[in-house]
Design a protein around this nucleic acid. Sequence first.
DNA 1: CGGTTATTTGAAAACCATTTTCAGTTTTCA
DNA 2: TGAAAACTGAAAATGGTTTTCAAATAACCG
Lengths: 140, 140
Amino acid sequence: MLAALTRAGYSNTRARRSVLEALFEANGQASPSELLVLGRAHHPALGIVTVYRTLEVLSELGLVRRLHQDDGCHTYAPVQHHHGHYVICVRCHRTIEFEGCDIGAVIASVEAQTGFKVREHWLEMFGLCPDCLAPGRDAA
Amino acid sequence: MLAALTRAGYSNTRARRSVLEALFEANGQASPSELLVLGRAHHPALGIVTVYRTLEVLSELGLVRRLHQDDGCHTYAPVQHHHGHYVICVRCHRTIEFEGCDIGAVIASVEAQTGFKVREHWLEMFGLCPDCLAPGRDAA
DNA sequence: CGGTTATTTGAAAACCATTTTCAGTTTTCA
DNA sequence: TGAAAACTGAAAATGGTTTTCAAATAACCG
């Protein structure tokens, strides 16, 4: 990821490195303010503005994806699959990317129903992760 | 919709009526500030706070659905189908609800891939509506 | 219909995530 | 190593949304 940034012409700075590290230490996904806290473990002077700016660059390069929360705030997850979507645990917020979103048929049906030409879609799933499903781990 | 509000124990007020009217005059969906403008045509004293509060009530009653925009802002659409999702025109913002979101197979595959138990999902599609697709209407 | 109470309303203020501004710092590169 | 370009953080600005609170309105009862 750092290499991709450099390749794209961006400087290799301490602040950006700390954001990248934070991103991988998170639970699959994290908000800018969570990344600030995690990132400061590596670079105490890190500022929230730089977290936002780094995430913006990473998004543009397709290295990170922005997830939408119900309240309208955002969360960011490293991209693993080119066409990936996410399942988010409603209890612990663990987030996993999945691929094989086979909704071609749904899109075709929507196009037929509405006359629209669909270009992109958002799909996010919410549920419980294996750990939070397991009985006896309610304290987690 | 008004009847449903009354049935649920809410007062039938001029302000709420104007928000309902605005909702149906919109292009399938509208933001709170757009609803304020539309609603004021019916009730000039309408305030934005009441628009928000009315939408909140309508959401709770399942009469309206909140759509998420890329920037995190929200838009509201009247509910037509119990399990509906929306296609939004990226050009004119016309929004149409569709049903028959047949992603049971996708959900099953995600559950198998990740071990999560999926409870709900968000699905929004973006594209061009028939009018905006039509050539020669570029001025619209 | 008139009076009383409970509900609702709108303005202003508070909130909070995100963006912009700007002067100082760090990187890059020759 | 030194100059120029890129980057950074703090503080201020923005803008959608929520809270507060006194005034207005609707519902209800007689």
